[in-house]
Simulated scan of single mutants.
Amino acid sequence: MTDDPPSPPATLPAELVDALADATPEQLRAVSRHAEALAEHKACEARLTDAADDADAAERPDGVPAKASTTIKEINGNRYYYWQWREGETVRSQYKGPVANEE
């Protein structure tokens, strides 16, 4: 073991490196456990989002961009799904289908 502390990764912000340098060994171990758990959570969240985006893209018709979201509009007492997205200052919508009664 060397007397010099380990070098931080170049990708870490200076504020984080400074905060870690001032931490106690117990705090560093707690940060390590939290960082591992947070990394796993974010990776899982990203996988779920990617899967949802892939499923959503499969049913998206031509002309509806990937950034479009779905919204529900009520017209004459009936509820309908619409794709909705922004083009500059304009909000665009395209009919998707009726909302099922059980929703």
Results as ranks from 00 to 15, higher is better:
56 D>P: 03
36 E>R: 15
56 D>L: 14
80 Y>P: 00
74 E>M: 13
10 A>G: 10
6 P>S: 10
65 P>W: 09
6 P>N: 11
75 I>L: 12
14 A>V: 07
52 A>Q: 13
71 T>E: 07
27 Q>L: 11
39 A>W: 01
93 S>E: 05
100 A>W: 04
8 P>A: 09
50 D>T: 12
8 P>N: 02
17 V>A: 03
103 E>Q: 14
76 N>E: 12
79 R>Q: 04
31 V>W: 12
94 Q>S: 08
39 A>Y: 02
24 T>K: 04
41 H>T: 04
45 E>C: 09
32 S>A: 15
90 T>S: 06
89 E>L: 14
99 V>W: 01
86 R>K: 12
10 A>C: 11
71 T>P: 03
59 E>P: 04
67 K>F: 12
13 P>G: 14
54 D>V: 08
14 A>S: 12
31 V>S: 13
60 R>P: 01
14 A>P: 04
68 A>P: 00
2 T>Q: 10
82 Y>E: 01
49 T>N: 08
45 E>W: 15
33 R>W: 12
51 A>R: 07
95 Y>H: 07
2 T>F: 04
40 E>P: 00
38 L>E: 14
98 P>D: 05
63 G>N: 01
19 A>I: 14
11 T>A: 11
100 A>V: 09
13 P>S: 11
20 L>K: 04
26 E>D: 08
19 A>D: 08
80 Y>R: 03
95 Y>F: 13
100 A>F: 04
42 K>R: 14
13 P>T: 09
65 P>Q: 06
40 E>T: 09
13 P>C: 09
2 T>M: 09
30 A>P: 00
20 L>C: 06
3 D>C: 12
37 A>D: 04
55 A>V: 02
68 A>H: 04
28 L>A: 05
3 D>I: 14
34 H>I: 05
69 S>C: 08
32 S>C: 15
73 K>I: 09
58 A>L: 06
56 D>K: 15
78 N>Q: 15
16 L>V: 07
46 A>Y: 05
73 K>F: 13
102 E>T: 13
63 G>I: 02
21 A>R: 14
70 T>W: 08
31 V>L: 12
98 P>S: 15
15 E>M: 15
84 Q>H: 00
58 A>M: 08
95 Y>P: 00
97 G>H: 07
22 D>K: 15
49 T>F: 06
34 H>G: 04
8 P>W: 11
1 M>T: 09
94 Q>R: 15
34 H>F: 12
54 D>N: 07
16 L>T: 05
27 Q>C: 07
74 E>I: 13
76 N>S: 11
85 W>N: 03
61 P>R: 01
80 Y>G: 00
60 R>H: 01
14 A>I: 12
86 R>P: 00
92 R>D: 00
49 T>C: 04
24 T>S: 13
67 K>M: 10
42 K>M: 10
47 R>I: 02
12 L>H: 02
18 D>T: 14
35 A>G: 05
98 P>I: 15
36 E>M: 10
85 W>F: 05
92 R>S: 00
47 R>C: 03
63 G>Y: 01
31 V>K: 10
7 S>N: 08
1 M>F: 04
23 A>N: 05
103 E>K: 14
47 R>Y: 03
1 M>R: 14
24 T>Y: 02
14 A>M: 13
20 L>Y: 10
